[in-house]
Simulated assay, not measured.
Amino acid sequence: MIEAIYDTFSTSGSVWVLLLAPLFLALRYVLRAFNKPQHGKHFEKQDIEQEIEPLEIFDFRKEAPIKYQPYKTQGHVTMGIQKRTRSEWIRMDRGYLDRINERLPLIRGKPEFTIGTGEKVNPAIEELYEEIMIKHLPARFPTMFKARGKTVKNLATGTTYPLTTAGITHAQMLAYMGENVEEDFYFMCPDHDGQYRLQGYIACFPGGFLSPARVGESVREIHKPVPGYERKLGLSVDRYFGRMIPGDFIGRMNWSLQVDGADLFRTDGNNYYPGTEQVVSEYKEDPSLDECYLRVEHQTLTKLPRTSAVIFTVRSYMTPLHQVKAEGDGKELAAAIQSMPEGLGYYKMRQYWGRKVLPWLMEDI
């Protein structure tokens, strides 16, 4: 059942399918398990004010990235939804400075693509700034972020930002977030009829969608081109957003292959959209193996307590396929790609790069 549904979704032309639809499919699959009474056990919803565990002797320069090999642990059908804690919301590792340096020119030079504000989302932007910049970073990473008077100093970059939202614009709040953490944030805000709509974002590393074009759309409108979404998922997703309790954090990982370089800012994407005027370059059929990467997104959903905005958080990782193969995972990755349902493989452009990349991954080191 779930395989068939996933295959249907993967053939859609909706650019948000890569991000939201897989997560919602997973939610549908596990909602009953999460909400079902557990005999002999007692589970309490966590308040968003739950204590943040401080990393007192943390050195980001020595911290390895989390293990992000979803092709080994969850495949494409079992979505790997897991509960997260508030402490795990933001991650730091030895790639931090490189990623921040990649984000800065995007925030400052392409704000029309990376920063989204507006009357309907501004209260949620202010609330998220308080949660991330004022509460979370100094508490979780005291060796990196030090509160000094009315500002916080980022000891890794040498920059400072305000310890208050007073006197700064909402665009500046988003810019400060984008300049200090690697995560991107998308704001799904409830409207008068209870539907959640994309109203704002700080999106330096979009994985193949143009955020400004989607502002104001509901989850259902975003997925309108998706066959079967309204019938199979629309109502369930709307209800789930409405039932989310602040302090609940759920996450999963999504992955794809990027065969034309390591840049994370992608509005064109790595996916094929049938029925559109998309032109696929010949390079996709004969990519340089030196330009092929595994792109993984760690995705998290949570709800803010004051505005009830649902925050979709995305942290992106890139790994050269040469490294994947050198670590002995080439055959396992190839098997995962080959096992994709036909529609999903088509959506991921397997029909183009697969003829060259798959045999190479299968070769012995």
Rank of each mutant, 00 (worst) to 15 (best):
R103W: 00
V77S: 15
I81G: 02
L106P: 02
Y71D: 01
S87V: 01
R86Y: 03
I100M: 13
G80K: 09
K83N: 11
Y96N: 03
T85G: 07
M79D: 09
K83Y: 13
I107A: 04
Y96G: 05
V77D: 11
G80F: 08
L97P: 03
I90Y: 05
I100F: 05
I90E: 09
T73F: 08
P105M: 00
R99F: 04
G95H: 07
P105E: 02
R94Y: 10
G80R: 06
K72C: 12
Q82V: 14
Y71T: 00
W89T: 11
L97C: 05
H76Y: 13
E88F: 09
L104C: 05
K83M: 12
N101P: 01
L106G: 02
T85M: 14
I90T: 07
K72H: 15
R84V: 09
S87N: 03
W89C: 06
R86E: 03
T85K: 12
I90C: 10
E88T: 13
W89I: 08
G75L: 06
E102L: 09
M92V: 13
E102V: 02
R103N: 02
R94N: 14
T78W: 13
N101G: 11
I100G: 04
I107V: 13
M92F: 15
R103F: 01
L106V: 07
T78D: 15
S87T: 11
M79S: 11
M92Q: 10
D93Q: 04
L97S: 06
R94H: 11
G75M: 05
P105K: 01
G95L: 03
T85E: 12
R86A: 06
I81Q: 07
I107H: 05
L104S: 09
R86W: 04
R84S: 15
Y96D: 07
R94L: 11
S87W: 02
I107R: 02
L97R: 08
L106M: 06
I107Q: 02
I90A: 09
R86M: 05
L104M: 10
Y71S: 00
E88K: 10
M92C: 07
E88I: 11
L97F: 03
R99N: 07
W89N: 04
I107T: 04
H76A: 15
D93R: 03
L106Q: 05
D93L: 00
M79G: 12
R91V: 09
S87R: 05
I107K: 02
H76I: 12
D93H: 10
G80H: 07
S87E: 06
N101I: 00
G95I: 00
R91L: 13
T73G: 04
Q74P: 01
T73S: 13
R99S: 06
R99E: 08
I100R: 11
Y71A: 00
D98R: 08
I81N: 04
Q82M: 09
D98S: 13
W89M: 12
R86D: 00
I100D: 04
G95W: 00
G80M: 08
G80W: 10
I100V: 14
D98E: 14
N101F: 03
G75H: 09
L97Y: 03
W89K: 09
W89S: 05
T85V: 08
R94M: 10
L106A: 02
D93S: 01
M92E: 14
D98M: 11
T85N: 13
R91D: 14
Q82G: 10
L97W: 01
D93I: 00
Q74I: 01
M79P: 15
T78P: 14
K72T: 10
V77F: 11
R91T: 12
G75K: 08
